[in-house]
Nucleic acid binder design. Structure first.
Length: 267
DNA sequence: AATGGGACCTGCGCGC
DNA sequence: TGCGCGCAGGTCCCAT
């Protein structure tokens, strides 16, 4: 659920607050979120390091530490980050900084993960990831669909196809473009892909401006909800009238994911 | 290559 | 009131 706009929001806010700050103490409350590293080793390697840079690739947050170490943070479904003065109840890992701020990695369902690596570019999740939607041109976007013959919605959510788009923004951009989530990509016209590009870009940008969608546990780093939920057009609006044609919005499971769409204006 | 299912997880809301 | 169950969705992995 934290998708590109949510992770981008967190990235920007962390940059304002912990860049060049030193991590003085770490507490691992739940070691399940640490992947391929033992808590003792993690603590030993991260305590005393300074945050040199923070960036994002898809839904992955990358924190560059001194000594060329990288924290790889993936919030998966129910993770969020809170920066404050105190420890949060659902914190799984806690980073205490030199300026007395505390960064809480919270995760209700413990599906999120934190890694510590030297070569983040070599991680499979990064290596195989598709392009950033906000960094490609229209022609490149359209070119991605060449030789693809699957349903459009699962394809948009495929991180190896396109980075950062999840269940919410895939649905919203398809509604905007008037494309049925089950349409075969083979049958999509250039004109429709072009429209989809415009929709996706504008929705992602708008969602970043509004600091993301708090449809679940996602929060900004100060604990406030994101403000994009009121702008969602189909997500979780089953049986409510379509904003364009008043037809009741339908919900259907597509490739195992709940999907909302307008059966009338999405063809 | 595409698709379907299960696993990982916890909390919530539903029906009985 | 309380219990069991299905569901929520990002990613990986296996089977077809």
């Amino acid at each position: 659920m934290p998708e590109l706009p949510e992770v981008e929001t967190i990235k920007l806010q962390l940059r304002e607050n912990i860049l060049n700050k030193k991590i003085v103490k770490i507490e691992v409350k739940d070691k399940r979120v640490l992947k391929q590293i033992k808590p003792e080793e993690f603590i030993l390697n991260v305590e005393g390091k300074t945050v040199n840079d923070i960036f994002r690739r898809g839904k992955v947050l990358i924190v560059k530490l001194s000594k060329d170490l990288f924290l790889i943070i993936h919030l998966r479904i129910s993770g969020w980050l809170i920066l404050g003065e105190k420890e949060e109840k659902l914190a799984r890992v806690i980073f205490k900084f030199s300026h007395n701020k505390i960064l809480n990695f919270c995760d209700q369902r413990v599906l999120g993960e934190i890694r510590l690596v030297e070569n983040w570019q070599n991680l499979p999740i990064i290596k195989e990831m598709g392009p950033e939607p906000l960094e490609i041109k229209r022609e490149e976007f359209i070119g991605l669909f060449k030789d693809k013959k699957t349903k459009i919605k699962p394809l948009l959510m495929d991180q190896n196809f396109l980075a950062g788009v999840g269940n919410v923004y895939a649905q919203e951009s398809l509604f905007c473009a008037g494309i049925h989530p089950e349409r075969s990509t083979q049958r999509l016209e250039i004109k429709e892909l072009s429209k989809l590009y415009d929709c996706l870009i504008s929705i992602l940008k708008e969602a970043i401006e509004k600091k993301g969608s708090s449809v679940d546990t996602y929060r900004q780093i100060d604990g406030q909800e994101g403000n994009y939920v009121p702008f969602l057009k189909v997500y979780q609006r089953e049986n409510k009238p379509c904003f364009r044609c008043n037809t009741p919005i339908k919900r259907k499971t597509i490739s195992g994911r709940g999907t909302y769409f307008c059966p009338h204006c999405q063809k």
